[in-house]
Write a protein that binds this DNA or RNA. Structure first.
Lengths: 152, 152
DNA sequence: CAAATATCCTACTAATCCTGTAGGAATACT
DNA sequence: AGTATTCCTACAGGATTAGTAGGATATTTG
């Protein structure tokens, strides 16, 4: 499994929307500027996210995007799969299962790959956007305690 | 992390050599034929494996390749890293650690990626070629018991 | 020494993926 | 009507992937 720049942008954008969940609709430009994502590129990503019903959009003036569900109900694994394909290091879970069951050679190898994909899925499929926001917060607090650098 | 066709070929070739570890040297052509890998492509892969001191080669007639160490001492994680780069889904472990420690935004996300890479590393770095051969054997036995199809 | 055979090295190619850009059409708010 | 924003299509340059081709180099056998 590999997370592309595009996938990373998608996650950052969603985290941005999650952080401002109460505010409602946010425009592409604003996300792009704050998260340092090329605006036109982000546009195309948001369309994908919209078609997958992760996000909903409003056009025209005062338009923009917002999460379709609360941050605690959006799973990181789904977003990664949507943008960057299956979590398995080779092929996908179904293909690997088939190979383990039918390949005369190297079934063990595919079985190993299946273990890796299951380990990744176990982590990514039970982490939500809300979890990540919480995690951000905790890391920041810990960093501050460890001799953070509050300016002056 | 993504295992390419090239990486898969490398692992298959190494498993082939591991299976015939006692026999000593095996020619590229033979591996290519038995494992159904394009010969010239396999050649280039074996050079990489040789430069990384995983395999040793002898030229000329009766030449070929063999593992430099016994199968139980060759770790899958190292092979994957060699052919397909870091195990992390984004960047590598060092970069992710740095990002978690210094990024003002989304440190939690990079921390999550670090968890994924650690989970993958935990699996791949403690599985050897010998483990995989054993695994192959077990799968075959289990398959046979479950109503295998012994011809006629 | 010569022939045969295998690895090793360099270069090239075709296809696909990745990371964007550009321009405009459709839509919705003021 | 005017303006701001999403949405759609097309394209482009660079990197990566999966090989191919041809020959130089080394080594064993006759």
């Amino acid at each position: 499994m590999k997370v592309s720049q595009r996938g990373l942008y998608a996650l950052k954008a969603l985290l941005h929307l999650a952080g401002r969940w109460e505010e409602g609709i946010v425009a592409t430009r604003e996300i792009a500027e704050r998260e340092e994502i090329p605006e036109k590129f982000l546009e195309s990503i948001l369309v994908v996210l919209k078609n997958a019903r992760v996000v909903e959009s409003r056009r025209g003036r005062e338009g923009g995007h917002r999460l379709r569900r609360p941050p605690a109900e959006i799973v990181v694994g789904d977003v990664v799969r949507l943008l960057d394909g299956p979590l398995a290091p080779f092929g996908d879970a179904t293909e690997l299962t088939r190979l383990v069951a039918s390949e005369p050679r190297h079934a063990g190898l595919f079985d190993l790959f299946l273990d890796v994909r299951n380990a990744a899925a176990a982590i990514l499929d039970h982490t939500t956007l809300a979890d990540l926001l919480e995690r951000d917060r905790k890391i920041l607090v810990a960093r501050r305690r460890r001799g953070g650098v509050p300016e002056t």
